[in-house]
Simulated scan of single mutants.
Amino acid sequence: MRSLITLCLLGFSIGAMAQDEPLPDLRNKRESFTKYPKGEIRDDLATFTIGGIDERLGKNPLQRIPATDFNMKSITFEGNNIKVVISSGPFDASKHKLFYYYEKKYLVKIDNKPYYGDYGTVPTTAITSVTVIVNNKDTVAIPPTAYADLFHPDFTYSEGGTIKTHNAVLQSADKKRLYIYMVNSESIGKYEVTWILQDNKYVGRVIDSGIMR
């Protein structure tokens, strides 16, 4: 009888552990702020990113290019002969390979890569393009690989009945570097990403994320 009770309790414990299986974070940290090499770009990033807040003291803020239009599907920044447009669209899961963790409870990879936004579940929206135009004519190519793993972009939020945005485009004091900054503020798996352009060329991105439950 005692063995039967022990076995039942063991089964219950295993079941409870299975139900409470945590969501693993497979997203690598190689592109985080802490990994970015010291220099002018890191100093610039520290002035506005959450990841660089510990290094912000004593640094002058960068010039911001204003957001001139934003809604649920896109955001546009214009100023200083620069125009930046970030656009989104529906995510079609049937066109992608989905990899789940723990008996299909949590989605952790899309097309064999960890992803950002709606982490753990199937995303509903994705970034479709990041367009940069300088001097009203020249387009700076932002490769799809720079945003293919980013989902659920948050272009707006409401504060006291006013629609605002956390996102920004910032320019270095010498005008040589441009930073396109976007924040996803969902409660689970939030992330912030900055696309970096130098001398009108895309040179990389910095992305930080965290799971908050």
Rank of each mutant, 00 (worst) to 15 (best):
K38L: 11
T139K: 15
Y36E: 06
A18S: 03
Y106H: 11
N80H: 09
T68F: 12
T68M: 11
I127G: 12
K175R: 10
Y115M: 09
L107I: 02
H166I: 00
S88G: 15
A141T: 12
S88I: 10
G79N: 14
P114T: 13
I180E: 07
D43P: 13
K176L: 00
P153Y: 05
M17C: 15
I163N: 08
I133D: 11
P66L: 06
R30Y: 07
N167A: 11
G51H: 02
S172Q: 11
N112D: 15
A146K: 13
N135L: 13
W195T: 03
K97G: 05
D43Q: 15
S32Y: 05
I110E: 10
D92V: 06
I110S: 09
F91I: 09
M72S: 13
R177P: 03
Y181G: 07
L4N: 01
I188P: 02
L57A: 10
Y101Q: 01
V122Q: 07
Y157W: 12
K113T: 06
Y102V: 09
G210M: 01
I180T: 08
R205V: 00
D92M: 06
Y202E: 06
W195S: 03
G189P: 02
I163Q: 08
T49I: 13
D208G: 12
I5D: 07
L150C: 08
D54N: 14
I127Y: 10
N136K: 15
G204P: 00
D199G: 00
M1E: 05
F48A: 10
A46H: 02
Y191W: 02
P143Y: 11
V84D: 06
T47G: 12
L62A: 14
Y115P: 11
